[in-house]
Design a binder for these strands. Structure first.
Lengths: 145, 145
DNA sequence: GTAACCCTTCGAGTCGACTCTAAGGCAAGC
DNA sequence: GCTTGCCTTAGAGTCGACTCGAAGGGTTAC
């Protein structure tokens, strides 16, 4: 069991590599108020393993399709304490619905794409094209190809 | 049963409303070689119900996350006839994999977001915050909030 | 007949989220 | 002592996919 030292200071470059963000992006996020970094006696930023949690959470939110502006609003509310929990909850709920809708749309599109791949596979299987059944097959998707 | 007239000519504005694209976008796609429009004796574009199929298919491909550049390549190959079927198939396959990977990532992110919503709901239920269990709960996600 | 629509070219603007450069300067490791 | 990394501010550049505007002119619908 290698225990990670909670005191270890990661400088911005090292930390960026750890969380998968460039130094540019880390500073950019800091400018935008999404994250904070502590500073050493020479004003150089440093992070600890503790900071991974929050950034990971942020990246998950971003991964749902949440925009930076929304993230900024969220962080702002968070800084205002527990009385903004309803707003934060509602924002996340709204993001969740939008994200689920996008997934559903994408899945529908993927279905069409997959059928097309299947059709290509069929066409590749037996070189003799049966254009009659092709047209029939395609009519399922209102796809003229 | 209202049969739609396959001869009916839709001008660009009407057709755009039908497929959910602006006239700008339709002309743009045409410039990019993705679609074609017939012209009347005065060089005005027109479309028929027949054109809906291809555009719908395109929009489905786009809906999987396929980029315009990829779409353009696809259309180019399509114009070259059946000998490019393997390339087209492979391109679609590649798009499919990328798209599925994105869905999986988004689903993982959504799980985190949903847990957070649940947690807010719990917190809203009983006003007395139990910070001990909160920290415990969050540690699941390596989320410091 | 007049408003609303369509045509062309061509270039500029928008949005989102970075990404990088410049300029000038400190700091740490080998 | 020199390379590499970090600091600042401020602004420019990138990518993708539109979106719009101007200019100048034809067309369609009521």
């Amino acid at each position: 069991m290698t225990a990670l030292d909670p005191e270890k200071r990661y400088r911005i470059g090292e930390f960026g590599a750890l969380v998968g963000l460039s130094t540019y992006t880390l500073r950019y996020y800091e400018d935008e108020g999404l994250i904070r970094a502590r500073r050493d006696e020479n004003d150089q930023r440093y992070y600890t393993v503790n900071d991974i949690g929050w950034i990971g959470f942020l990246l998950h939110l971003k991964g749902t399709g949440m925009k930076l502006t929304e993230l900024k609003q969220y962080v702002k509310w968070r800084a205002q304490g527990d009385q903004t929990i309803p707003q934060r909850r509602d924002l996340l709920e709204q993001v969740r619905e939008a994200s689920l809708a996008e997934i559903r749309e994408r899945e529908a599109s993927l279905k069409v794409l997959s059928h097309k791949i299947d059709w290509y596979d069929g066409k590749l299987d037996h070189q003799i094209a049966d254009n009659e059944s092709f047209a029939e097959y395609l009519s399922q998707f209102s796809d003229q190809d």
